[in-house]
Structure formats: structure tokens, C-alpha cells
Amino acid sequence: MINGTVSDLDKLVLMAEDVSKTVSALQTKIAHQRAMFVIFIAAALSLLPFLLYLFYMKIQMGQSNFANLIPRETIVFIRILGAVIGVFGIYYAYNNITKMRIYRRELNSETEILRRLLDMVHEYRQYIHDKELSYVENAIFEMRIQRIKFSTKQSA
């Protein structure tokens, strides 16, 4: 593949392959982040009533039968642990949302490029260089293009 138009087409196809892979990788990352976030929310919601109970448990031991059974140090430890988990949870949620936002922004720009490449690759191949390729070269390009996932749908 030595002549100019073929080399340009090769560059376009290579770029499309690359961008398509990036889009898939970003979609996977977003799906992963979303799944982790859902697990985190589910865990937080299931732990919340217990943590709230411990956190607001009255200091006066005499007023709660349950509290009487637990040493004061343990309650303090559980409260500190709860607070640490809470702070970590907030940090994790913030981090997760920020990452998702970054991934989405990257995905939008890559999707736009991929859409433009979809037009460029096909129009270039059909209109610019069509007759300059041998049958084998043409078939190779066909197969390479057919492998590229231009769809931006997650499920596709």
C-alpha cells in the first residue's frame, strides 16, 4: 500500500479502529463505575438504619437495655468507625461522580469523532480511491471496516 490515497485510507481506518476501541473502553469504564456506585448506594442504604441507631444512641447507659450490654469504649469505637466510613463513603461517591463525568465528556468527544470517521472512511473508500486497490487489498479493507464497531450504544 504505497500510493497516497491508500495510505490516507489506511490512516483513517487505523484511527477508526483506535477510536472505536477507546469508545468501547470508556463505555465499559462508565458501566463499571455505575455498577460500583449502585452497590455502594445499596450498601449505604442497608447500613444506614444501624449506623444511625448507634450514632444517636444515648450516652446515658441506663436508658437503653441494649446499650448496657455494650461497653462504652466499643460504642465510641463504632461511632468513630461509622464516621470514618461515612467520610470515606462521601469521598467515594464524589470521586465516582467526578470520574463518571470525566468519562462521559471523553465519550462524547470520541463519539463525535467516530461518527465523523464513519462518514469519512466510507466516503473516502467509495469516492476517492476505489479503483486503486487490488481485490485482495479491497477485501482486507472491507473486513477491517466490518470489524469496527461504529455503534455508540452500550448494548450493541
Binding site: 461518527r115 464513519l118 466490518q146 461504529f150 455503534s151
Partner: peptide, 30 residues
């Protein structure tokens, strides 16, 4: 503009509705 995905639409053909797929013209995996 350019369709990268297969578009699936319910379209009435005569009395009955059919599921119609618009297949992208570009040679692609989809």
C-alpha cells in the same frame, strides 16, 4: 445525519403495524 446504529421503528403498513429495521448503509459491524 449518519446512522451508525440499526434503527428499529414500529410502522403501520396497511392495517397492521410492522417492526421495521433501518439498516445503516455503511459497511460496518452493525
Amino acid at each position: 445525519g449518519t446512522s451508525a446504529d440499526v434503527e428499529i421503528k414500529p410502522i403501520a403498513i396497511g392495517d397492521w403495524t410492522k417492526i421495521v429495521a433501518v439498516i445503516p448503509g455503511q459497511n460496518s459491524a452493525e
